[in-house]
Design a protein around this nucleic acid. Structure first.
Lengths: 237, 237
DNA sequence: CGACCCTGTCAATGCCATTGACAGCGACTC
DNA sequence: GAGTCGCTGTCAATGGCATTGACAGGGTCG
């Protein structure tokens, strides 16, 4: 390694590492990076032949898996910064922050969210966070098993809805507008006498159409209300 | 149209209709039909040239949109059969049945669920069902707007989680097992002293791993508990 | 110094959606 | 009833994609 500088960059052979590839891939997944992850783009981004990546990841699936790991991990990290060190008693804040952090990490890379699809990351990224989360729920009064179930339910729901949002955000403007227009028309034309309630709530529904974050917030708080009910029930028993 | 019979089937020109295409496409989306929707497969299924479909749908997106419409519609239809005619007072049953029906319709065609991704079907399929659903919630004590929000939240959550499940079910066995194995190992090796609660709930968590329906049921009932709390709150005010 | 492996390169394969030119055929016009 | 037009199926071609196998340079280890 004699520091032969990169002036010959034209034909210089680049050296890839697992890390450099992951980094570049994450960049590509973000909207600023183009929002599409393909081998050819990845090759260009790295200044190497697209197929060189295969030396480090068996196939695209493995690459995506590693990326989701990083992303969930980042989300958990993010939530840790926003939360007090030790397990506090404010379970609601814990769950909210965790869910929103994971969601935010994913939404920063919509392309990844779409590819990740069903892959519930196998590595309980940041196991400590998970343990703490369950602890918080348990201290609030939930039996351990039930607390674990809540954690799992919350995470899956969050991932699913986030991926859903991401998929939509990736569509080109035209498709999005097409959807929105159709939606607005349908709700605007509802005969008031046949669908009184729907007609009455139409404005709110159209408003919610493009507001995925709003819908997510809705689902989340309702879910948390459910958890609260569960906790209360457990305490009485 | 002189009933020249199909003995000349080799070079006979098939006539496509929007309906016949949709039908064939739905067939392809089901696991029995191969579980993959592509133009070439669709062409073969119809006995026509793949590109003939373009005469009836501008592109794949339009086709998929029409298919999701049909599917949600079928789900709503299904739920109507399982429910009493007029709006009853058992809002919980209503929401449960609706969610599970829509989910079932989608899961019968995992390939579609994956393609549909973010496309919240623009046509409020079976507007009557929606109106009824909101009515039920409103009669239970929820303000109209809030009832509409609940409907939207429930539907989106259901669609998102279902698509999530579908995506996983489409992976080949090997990938699924890879995930599962990694998962089990991770949870099995957790040091008990560092992660006491996680260690304790590991069996339940691994059990939930492949049980997407179980997780969905969990999310759903928790969500409904939340709705119940909301209703109670609204009644008091 | 030689064998070997790690890793980047290159050319090729096969699937996919999509397009444009063409062709049969029915309907409609004069 | 002949000509014209438009609807719709066919065919060949394009460009993007993941993936594979043969090759090659260069570093390492014996």
């Amino acid at each position: 390694m004699e520091a032969r500088v990169a002036e010959q960059s034209s034909k210089r052979r680049v050296t890839l590492t697992r890390e450099s590839i992951l980094e570049a891939a994450l960049r590509l997944c973000s909207p600023e990076g183009g929002g599409q992850l393909t081998f050819s783009r990845l090759g260009k981004e790295l200044g190497a032949d697209p197929t060189a990546v295969y030396r480090h990841f068996r196939d695209k699936d493995e690459l995506v898996l590693a990326l989701t790991d990083l992303t969930v991990q980042e989300g958990m990290e993010l939530s840790r910064q926003a939360l007090p060190d030790g397990p506090s008693d404010d379970w609601r804040a814990w769950l909210t922050v965790t869910a929103q952090s994971v969601r935010a990490s994913y939404l920063a890379r919509p392309a990844l969210a779409v590819l990740a699809a069903a892959r519930t990351t196998a590595s309980p990224a940041e196991t400590h966070s998970v343990e703490q989360l369950i602890t918080v729920l348990h201290r609030a009064g939930l039996p351990v098993i039930e607390a674990a179930e809540c954690y799992r339910a919350l995470l899956d729901m969050t991932l699913a809805m986030t991926q859903y949002t991401a998929a939509f955000s990736i569509l080109d403007r035209s498709a999005q507008e097409k959807d929105e227009a159709a939606w607005a028309v349908k709700y605007g034309m509802l005969p008031e006498d046949e669908f009184p309630l729907l007609h009455q709530s139409a404005p709110r529904l159209t408003e919610l159409f493009r507001d995925d974050d709003g819908v997510f917030a809705l689902v989340l708080t309702t879910f948390l209300d459910g958890v609260a009910a569960r906790i209360e029930r457990a305490r009485k028993a």
